[in-house]
Amino acid sequence: MLALIIRRLAQSVLVMLFVALIAFVMFRYVGDPIASMVGVETRIAEQEIMRDRLGLNDPVFMQFLRFIGNAVQGQFGISYRLQQPVSELIMSRLPATIELAFASATIALIGGVALGVFTALRQGSFATGAIMAASLVGVSLPTFLIGIALIYIFAVELGWLPSFGRGQVVELGWWRTGLLTESGLRSIILPAITLSLFQLTLIMRLVRAEMLEVMRTEYIRFARARGLSDKAINFGHALRNTLVPVITITGLQLGSVIAFAIVTETVFQWPGVGSLFITSVQVVDVPVMAAYLMFIAFVFVVINLIVDILYFAVDPRLRVDGGAAGK
């Protein structure tokens, strides 16, 4: 048990090192860090002095070690564009993204499970066909088009909901939340829906497939034979068995929701890390890009680790088998 966790941890550290290497290569070799920092008028001799002072003349291996050392302490240097420490920038943008990700995951989970159950139980009905077709349309619609359409309909034409930003925020320590004010709650609706649609179709299809699978099992037939009501069978037995993988997948997807938010945040001017990242890509603000990459990798590693350990705790069979747990 302990051995497995240690092995998983070691693997996670390896993954982080690998991502750190990519981030470092980017940081060091994409553009000249000095050229990005100084104006065109700085003389060559001064640039050399700065190069020395920043340690850019040290052996590459030393530089990489120092990069990791700094990264562990959460230091990624100073944004070329905004001239502020990158870690502070990311921390100040993080609450917005996390709130958006959770809101959209909630919508995706509730909507996806409901539609999935419905389509599984009403197989072959017209509504099911329509929902299944609509789900494919949803997958084929690029997120940015959905966002633009929602803004046009609900913000501009109908004027029901705000078109951009987070509305009024309240500070809880360092965490700025938009979930405690009316304008904040209204603001999150459109971006959360936009971001959730893709995950919603995913969850819906998963729930449907799992439900159909479970319904075929002996155990359900037996329950039916026992004379249990449809309702009890559908929700008490079938759905409950379906939910474990669904929740796992939703958890695993949370990380990608955070990363997927890039497009949604751009369209809705949502002040999260995703829009910070896209601005940074456009102006080649490498410290922010490198830090964002490390941040996302960290989120994934942590989520994966938790899921693995949970699996292990829940399913005794894995204890014999060893590390076969996975996604």
Binding site: I148, Y152, L161, P162, S163, G165, T266, F268, Q269
Partner: peptide, 18 residues
Amino acid sequence: YLPISDALTRVAALLSGN
């Protein structure tokens, strides 16, 4: 003061009264 980089979002913000 509200920076809104996307032109469409910016105009929409005024049209929707934000």
